[in-house]
Design a protein around this nucleic acid. Sequence first.
DNA 1: ATGGTTGCACAGCAA
Length: 254
Amino acid sequence: MKIATWNVNSIRSRVERVAAWTQRERPDVLCFQEIKTTDDLFPLAPFADLGYRAEVFGQKTYNGVAILTRKPLTQVVRNLPDDASDAPRRLLAGTVDKVRIVNVYVPNGQSPDSDKFIYKLDWLARLRSFLAASASAKDPLVLLGDFNIAPEERDVRYPDLWRGHIHFHPKEHEALARITSWGLHDLLRKHHEEGGLYSWWDYRQLAFQKNNGLRIDLILGTAPMLKRSQDVVIHRDERKGESPSDHVPVVAEV
DNA sequence: ATGGTTGCACAGCAA
């Protein structure tokens, strides 16, 4: 089973490119973040032509998540249980082929001294509670998406520059550790120990050309998924060429 | 870094 995550930074602005990648890779499950569109404007047709159905949880201008699958997605959950009805749309979960899929777009946090950083940490704490209340770590589950946190030094090209900023802050690492302590494993690290594996490069300051990257798009799995996992691959080439997202797809074969 | 680039939507915010 091929499971992918991709922060597309507006699905409508690069649907051709995303659909072309999807046609080449044919994942069974494709999780999008930052679709930046309402449900009614999501470009379904290019994906339907490839045999996908879509569960879309979008909003205007910001955020928004979606799960595309070849088989039906059941037991769909939208956002965290304690979110208000008008909360930013950041979580979409469902079950396909007996695997629970939890697709997240973790708040960016803006800067460590901002209210948005508090919101980020609180959102992660509530995500932890949601997992513990709604699932068992003994069952097949993947928690994947844009975490906006690079777990370790080897996940950051310039850790000394990033330490203490958003994406690489001790409080973020604490919050992430609380989540993984529920019973989740970073599937990529089963297969690849090395550094230099990044999934996001800022649009500014020629970050990609300088390879100032971070691995902030993660696929975490419970023990059964860790056991099943065959490989996790980061599609770095998707950052190249005409109008890329600032994130690239990450694909797990499980 | 009061920076820089991109997307949405058409000013200024979010990332």
